[in-house]
Design a protein around this nucleic acid. Structure first.
Lengths: 155, 155
DNA sequence: TGGTAATGGTTGTTTTTGTAACTAACAAGC
DNA sequence: GCTTGTTAGTTACAAAAACAACCATTACCA
């Protein structure tokens, strides 16, 4: 690294989207190694798996809505998870466009393993922050991310 | 959205890397529209431009290190910024592998415009949070993102 | 020196993503 | 019933990213 100089009031290193990105990048990449190395999962696949593990039976659209994942990404992730027998597709009885998705026992096992790992990883990540800081951080992030979802934020 | 059911302690919607990602994605995509529509810049190009605008003369490696951007991405971004005459490359006198990068007046102008826009955007983003919340948020994000950089955090 | 390793940077190839268009099924109005 | 409009989900194609291999230096060190 070299000199500095300029810096006229604005500081990229304090620019929020930048900071968010750096932090997200850091934490995502670290955890990515886990689900990738251990199960060969892509990020979207992991997210879809998690949604199913957490909420049980859902449709592709449900997942997309909840997780703000584009339907093409969901579609492809579901396809691959299906190939690996991590989930099963069940045609809806009432609407032939729809398929209900549900984890197979194998998928459940993967989910549980990754969930537990994620929990420990998060603890490590937050080590050194007070409970208050953590709570506030999450609250703020929820609002910033538009996760005004019932399931998440106490608002 | 359908039922819930399961939910056994762990909540993806409160999983930090997930939250970080959602928030980062949200803010990045929103601001992306600005530099894309206005100058046809890619995200990495914008980031490189910003680094140069903020720190002045740097090498490609400097930028990569600071911004955690892979060197191939930096390389290609620099190439395109050069094509648009937003930056100038100057061979180092002491090391023929190295090139110093510096914004042209045109590049400076773009930088200033986008920086000002970014500033206003950030204000809008943070509207509704107290100064304290903002300060703490940034501090925590700095640490999470590994931005222990002198230029940014009071630690 | 001369050989090996490390660094700065670029290029080529393969994966992933984003965008748009498309099929199939349902819904509504007339 | 038949047209028009929506919705669920997939597929095709273009753009962007990840990854690896690659020069051309420079640094290290016997």
């Amino acid at each position: 690294m070299t000199e500095t100089a300029k810096i006229e009031g604005f500081d990229l290193l304090r620019f929020l989207p930048y900071l968010l990105n750096q932090a997200a990048e850091e934490s995502s990449l670290t955890f990515q190694k886990v689900y990738k190395d251990r199960y060969g999962l892509l990020r979207t696949e992991w997210r879809v798996l998690f949604h199913l593990g957490m909420f049980g039976e859902m449709t592709a659209t449900d997942i997309g809505t909840r997780g703000k994942i584009h339907k093409t990404k969901v579609s492809r992730a579901v396809y691959r998870l299906g190939q690996r027998r991590y989930l099963k597709r069940m045609p809806s009885e009432t609407d032939r466009r729809v398929e209900w998705l549900v984890l197979t026992p194998a998928g459940e096992a993967v989910y549980r393993d990754l969930r537990d790992t994620a929990e420990r990883y998060e603890e490590a990540l937050l080590d050194g922050f007070t409970a208050d800081e953590v709570a506030q951080l999450k609250r703020v992030l929820c609002r910033l991310g538009g996760t005004t979802d019932s399931a998440g934020s106490p608002k």
